[in-house]
Write a protein that binds this DNA or RNA. Structure first.
Ligand SMILES: NC(=O)c1ccc[n+]([C@@H]2O[C@H](COP(=O)([O-])OP(=O)(O)OC[C@H]3O[C@@H](n4cnc5c(N)ncnc54)[C@H](O)[C@@H]3O)[C@@H](O)[C@H]2O)c1
Ligand SMILES: NC(=O)c1ccc[n+]([C@@H]2O[C@H](COP(=O)([O-])OP(=O)(O)OC[C@H]3O[C@@H](n4cnc5c(N)ncnc54)[C@H](O)[C@@H]3O)[C@@H](O)[C@H]2O)c1
Lengths: 278, 278
DNA sequence: GCGACTTTGTGCCTACGTTCACAAGCGGCT
DNA sequence: AGCCGCTTGTGAACGTAGGCACAAAGTCGC
């Protein structure tokens, strides 16, 4: 018979493949400390939906920007516009983490930031290790945006002998054989894989062995991990292909009409965006 | 009263904000669509669902790998395992683009590749421009994975005088003032923004003015664009925060029980292959 | 102190996406 | 030639997410 596809030539033990779509479902937020307005719902499984978590992170970023500008409070309308979402959706997202708004007024920026940080687990710093200090790894190691948001990059790994000990972004590169020791010592909780695709699975295995339970993968491969490990992937080629899909759709969807490729100069188009009245 | 949040200090004209969650949903085939809201009967919507498009890109990558290994055909079971999805989902995804399988046999790798490429619009090369040749921009410009997948990077832009004319990844950097001319000449269809956040919106506006209708944004800001423009964003901080959320959940969810953080060495966990129960 | 106004929080409904399960279709074997 | 087993393609069930619309709840003005 014709030979069939085989996902992996080596007889790798089957483990749960990981896609970003994994269940983020969360049980109750119930740290039960505060007053617990208790609208009458039982405290049973108050799960935060998948998509809501991602948006909370965006709200947090927007709110941080507002705080820097000394903004004290926002309405759901304003915040949603700034975050690019529907205001009802925003309110619902916020309701998942509790009731921290004041009717007729809005939300206090400071309070919202604290609460979102609490839910996202940002009260504790998450130490990050980057593996594969090539083009991308260098950029990541040098990026100041991570430490600034509670994700200090504390360890770098590679196999290239020339890189050993060389500091990148202030941190010396270690050999991947040291992953267990270094990750343990620096309490790494998140591993970032920026190696060539062929090495990604092996690196992933090492990180998992070292106790890292969260992995951000830039290599275009589907990693196999135990189900206790959370993997998110960033695949730029896929992003580009999705954009390409839209180009194609648009091309054969409206071929005749709208031949004017010139979009409104400097925006001004799409006035009915998300609300933004006022 | 306390001042309220204001998404943008400048009186930027409101445009449609863009999130990745945006509608990828392909509008119905409705070429002559203006018939009426088609009450009740759903037209044979040839729409490919949001999520399916992203997965098709993944399937394509896996299939390419198989082709390289001279694999001639695959079953949905095999392909889905390699792509990390449920086999039923895979079949449904493939069904959106047509019926190219053979019952009792599977799919021909070659045929599937051609068809997915067709649907994703990869038959035509999509020229990419990168703006902001800093840490990240360099990595992107040097990355060989894009040209290899039909996305040649043909233009680079920055404002730094020291970078002008300097070739990165074989392409000389141009000034952003040249965006219109260069993008037109090189038929750029996709713009990648890798500038500091503060410059992102202005750069985006320029790209849009130049006729670029697809944008991949790495800056942590919500871009406002006309609705004719498709924006996808890659926000690494958000990815890390989502992972952090999982750490937090796990921590206060199973504190007593299952405290064994030791993951199975080298995998071996999750014995059930893909699919399995549920 | 009270009413009018503003904005939250959420019930409900719709749309979308995922999964199941199985009939239909095809190749190979006898 | 006909049957058998395998795999596709998809209808239907189920679950999740999105969005409207409104009652509840608080503030502000008078
Ligand atoms: N550069 C980009 O812009 C970009 C874009 C999208 C995806 N990616 C993906 O990110 C990954 C890294 O890309 P890059 O451009 O930085 O590649 P690169 O070749 O520049 O760097 C790879 C690094 O990994 C190291 N390495 C190789 N094998 C290793 C191993 N077994 N363990 C640890 N380190 C190892 C190499 O020494 C090198 O330093 C690749 O999988 C690539 O497909 C990169
Ligand atoms: N480096 C990373 O790993 C990383 C990770 C996540 C997000 N990001 C985001 O990606 C973006 C770029 O990050 P980076 O680390 O490469 O920054 P960087 O500072 O290294 O590079 C920014 C580049 O943009 C150029 N630039 C500044 N203003 C510009 C303008 N108006 N038009 C064109 N170019 C302009 C600068 O000259 C510089 O070359 C930032 O928004 C950052 O938040 C980067």
């Amino acid at each position: 018979m014709a030979q069939r596809g085989q996902s992996d030539a080596a007889g790798r033990p089957p483990r749960a493949p990981a896609e970003n779509a994994a269940e983020i479902t969360t049980p109750m937020p119930a740290i039960g400390g505060n007053g617990m307005p208790a609208p009458g719902l039982r405290d049973r499984a108050r799960a935060i939906p998948e998509a809501a978590v991602a948006r909370l992170a965006v709200y947090l970023r927007v709110l941080s920007g507002m705080r820097e500008q000394a903004v004290a409070s926002v309405s759901s309308e304003e915040l949603s516009a700034a975050a690019g979402v529907n205001s009802a959706k925003l309110r619902k997202d916020l309701s998942y983490i509790g009731s921290y708004g004041t009717r007729g007024v809005g939300y206090e920026v400071e309070v919202l930031i604290d609460q979102i940080e609490r839910v996202l687990g940002l009260t504790r710093e998450q130490s990050v290790a980057v593996v594969g200090i090539g083009n991308l790894g260098h950029a990541l190691a040098n990026y100041g945006g991570f430490p600034g948001r509670g994700f200090p990059v504390t360890a770098l790994f590679d196999v290239d002998p020339d890189l050993m000990g060389v500091p990148v972004g202030g941190i010396p590169v270690d050999h991947i054989d040291d992953i267990p020791a270094v990750c343990a010592a620096r309490e790494v909780t998140i591993g970032v894989i920026a190696t060539p695709p062929a090495a990604a699975q092996a690196v992933c295995d090492r990180l998992v062995q070292a106790g890292v339970e969260c992995i951000l993968n830039f290599a275009p491969v589907v990693l196999q991990v135990p189900e206790t490990v959370e993997v998110r992937k960033v695949d730029l080629a896929v992003e580009l292909q999705i954009l390409s899909f839209h180009v194609a759709r648009r091309a054969d969807h409206a071929p005749a009409d709208d031949a004017t490729p010139a979009p409104r100069v400097d925006g001004v188009a799409a006035p009915r965006g998300v609300v933004v009245r006022r």
